[in-house]
Simulated scan of single mutants.
Amino acid sequence: MNAKDAALLNLLQNDASLTLERLADAVSLSVPAVQRRIKRLRDSGVIKGNVIIVDPAAVNMSMTFIVIVELERDRSEQIEAFRRKAMKEPLVQQCYYVTGEGDFVIISIARNMEDFEAMTHRLLFEDSNVRGFKTSISMGKPYKTLYVPIEES
């Protein structure tokens, strides 16, 4: 990855709606050169997709929960089964398989405690491989980003 690719990625991470013309101007390349670079970054898997970011509070999903999940068994098939189940749960935003306390850390949103409780029943209580879980509730507005600082390599 060279400096131009890194600059394009940093710009696009901050605003994926930038036009090719604005990107080309910012990195001192032609529009076709920027288009080719972006296509190459997509084709190689560096760029995974484009998203919009929705304010959860604006759609009445203002509660954020951090859940540490401990499994009964650590066999790979049980770990993968839980990961797949968590990925299908609409209220789960992030799911990490971790070392240390617990086996998974889940970041979940919900409208209220009742919605969260229903999710815990679907995802956790009804799973015989879940030994237990601990929940923390986010206080105030969280800082969130998916930005990855890119430097030329």
Rank of each mutant, 00 (worst) to 15 (best):
I53Y: 14
T120Q: 07
V98G: 00
G132F: 09
A16V: 08
H121F: 11
A86K: 02
M63C: 05
M87A: 14
I66Q: 02
R42H: 15
Y147F: 13
S62L: 12
F133V: 02
S138T: 05
V69Q: 03
A26M: 11
V69C: 01
D115F: 04
A110W: 00
K144D: 05
M87V: 04
E114Y: 02
I137C: 03
R131V: 04
K144T: 13
I47M: 05
N10Y: 00
Y97C: 07
A26W: 01
P90F: 09
K88W: 02
A33Y: 06
V31S: 13
A3W: 09
G140W: 01
A81C: 06
D15P: 04
E21C: 05
A3Y: 06
I150E: 15
V46T: 15
I53Q: 15
S62T: 12
L123S: 01
E89Q: 15
E70S: 09
R73I: 05
V51P: 05
Y96N: 08
N2G: 15
D115I: 05
R40D: 04
S44N: 13
M113W: 09
M61L: 15
R83H: 04
A33D: 06
G102Y: 07
Y97P: 01
A7P: 02
V98L: 05
R73F: 10
S30Y: 04
F82K: 02
V105W: 00
K144C: 06
F65H: 11
T64G: 01
V51F: 08
F82M: 01
Y143F: 11
R83M: 11
E70F: 10
A81D: 11
E72W: 02
D103S: 07
S128N: 11
G102D: 08
L12F: 05
V148T: 10
D74S: 13
I38F: 06
E72C: 05
M1Y: 07
I53C: 13
S138E: 14
Q35P: 00
R37I: 14
D25G: 14
L12T: 12
